[in-house]
Write a protein that binds this DNA or RNA. Structure first.
Lengths: 121, 121
DNA sequence: TTTATTACTCTACAAATGTAGAATAATTTT
DNA sequence: AAAATTATTCTACATTTGTAGAGTAATAAA
């Protein structure tokens, strides 16, 4: 099961904080902050979906992500690539290189990284 | 306004066909194919959202995408990059290079592309 | 020990999504 | 012309999503 938009927004906050009490999560929202109960509902649903866990501390719960941002992001990417590039990562890579506008400096850095990757093959 | 999942699925079909009658769209679905009326509803909503247009041909309509796949994809990518990499395309690029597993050949091709891009700067 | 406060859970409800039957209009076949 | 077919629109309804008030239990403050 996937995260909905507002769930994902909350997840972003949780990833940033790494772990947090509900109160702090609400606090971290940009204005207008949602009601505590709203966040509570989202957290509940996210627990059902196995994206969030918590540790009981006193009578409070410290929530934490059960899925890493990296992992989640990868899945998203793969989904996109699958849909739009017929599952071809390299096709995507070339599209990406052509269509985004990285500066020359950034391009050089990227090439650097690729070189390194090639070396390690 | 964004496309929902099932709308996006239909959009993929429409992009592939470039233009098509409702009947053909339904036909193009993998089994189990949805009811004609289901596709009709989706098309209607997609028109409201300005993602689809049509040309009347006799008493039928030939539907076509009003947003290119490329353009749509770019927006999706930018959304992801914004959320996960704080809007830094280059940060994303390096993540991508590290985390996906392109073959050596693909990596070389990619570097080739980057080189060309740099040249054109 | 009454009263607040805190931290959740339950219930609710409008909007969006996924899916499709029923109705209607135009056209073609008998 | 009556009957069947085609192409769309209307209406409907179960789920999921976005948002939050009301209720409850435990603890802290008066």
């Amino acid at each position: 099961m996937e995260l909905s938009n507002s769930e994902e927004q909350l997840m972003q906050i949780l990833w940033k904080k790494d772990k947090a009490f509900m109160k702090d999560l609400v606090e971290a929202y940009p204005d207008p902050k949602p009601a505590l109960t709203t966040v509570a509902t989202l957290l509940k649903r996210m627990q059902d979906k196995k994206f969030v866990g918590y540790t009981q501390i006193g009578r409070s719960r410290e929530y934490f992500p059960k899925v890493s941002k990296k992992n989640y992001f990868s899945k998203q990417m793969n989904g996109l690539i699958k849909n739009f590039f017929n599952d071809s990562t390299s096709q995507f890579a070339s599209f990406f290189t052509q269509e985004t506008d990285l500066s020359e400096k950034e391009l050089r850095e990227l090439r650097e990284l690729i070189d390194e990757k090639i070396k390690n093959k």
